[in-house]
């Protein structure tokens, strides 16, 4: 428990004392939000995962595509 407290404190202290770091974390946060909650959700569906429910159908679909 003491070790866990030390680790948490280590991170809290680190974040508190950052200068440029705060700006960087804001950029990282915004970027990850755009990537995962906008681009991935609305623009980048995994086509085979969303269109088929099992691997057998996915395999058949791909074989159909490449042997047309």
């Amino acid at each position: 428990m003491n070790l866990l407290y030390k680790i948490v404190n280590f991170y809290i202290d680190g974040f508190k004392n950052m200068k440029v770091g705060k700006k960087l974390w804001l950029i990282i946060g915004t970027k990850l939000f755009i990537f995962f909650f906008i681009l991935k959700l609305f623009f980048f569906p995994n086509i085979l995962q969303t269109q088929f429910t099992n691997d057998k159908d996915r395999a058949n679909f791909v074989i159909d595509n490449i042997t047309k």
Partner: peptide, 26 residues
């Protein structure tokens, strides 16, 4: 600075594999 701004820019390519390159990805 470079690490923070560059981190995860590569993940976009993995998104593209699943969407644009589904045959290849499979």
């Amino acid at each position: 600075i470079n690490f923070a701004i560059g981190v995860a820019t590569g993940i976009i390519m993995e998104f593209e594999f699943g969407t644009n390159w589904s045959n290849y990805s499979w």
